[in-house]
Amino acid sequence: MRNLILTLFIVGVTTSTFAQTKDSMKNFDPAFAHTVYFWFKDPDNTSDRALFEASLKKFLQHSQFAKTNFIGKPPVATRDVVDGSFTYSLIVTFESAEAQEGYQKEQAHLTFIEECKHLWEKVIVYDSFGIAE
């Protein structure tokens, strides 16, 4: 009985620790998505990666226009249709195309580009409007 109580306690603490709350959830905004892929000149350089991640996170924390964001690295590709050649990906959502235009011109974004543009050899951007439900 004692082990059962201890197990239930641990499960309860773990569940409450990792459960999403309304305050901690970010809702994806389907109005406008800005997807960016970065290819680094030296993708294995840990200092370059640290600089990029710190600068990108700082920029996104200070953006007045970005609603939600996702920073990713490619997984090990298991299917031929998966392109894992990039170094980082970024998906940012906006409430409108106009908000995305403001994001392009805001100082936080311009500072990020200035701090990191020397790291990449290629950047591809895909912008998309959401399809109305």
Rank of each mutant, 00 (worst) to 15 (best):
K122V: 06
H62R: 13
Y103K: 04
L60T: 12
F38C: 07
I71S: 02
K117D: 13
K73N: 11
F52N: 07
E133W: 02
K57F: 00
W39C: 10
M25D: 06
P74T: 11
A132K: 14
R2Y: 06
I5L: 11
E53V: 13
S85I: 01
G130Y: 05
E106L: 04
T17I: 12
F32T: 10
E95P: 00
S24I: 02
V92K: 02
N69V: 08
E114D: 15
G130K: 10
L51H: 08
T15C: 08
E133N: 13
S63Q: 05
K58M: 06
W120A: 09
K122T: 09
H62E: 15
C116M: 04
L56A: 12
Y103E: 07
S16I: 04
L90I: 12
L110C: 04
I91M: 14
Y126S: 09
D44G: 13
S55N: 06
F59L: 08
I113D: 05
Q104C: 00
N27W: 03
V76Q: 14
A99S: 14
D23L: 06
F94P: 12
S16V: 05
T68Y: 02
T17C: 12
F52K: 09
D80I: 02
E133H: 10
H109T: 11
N3A: 12
S24W: 00
N69Y: 15
A132M: 03
P43G: 08
T17M: 11
E133M: 03
F18D: 10
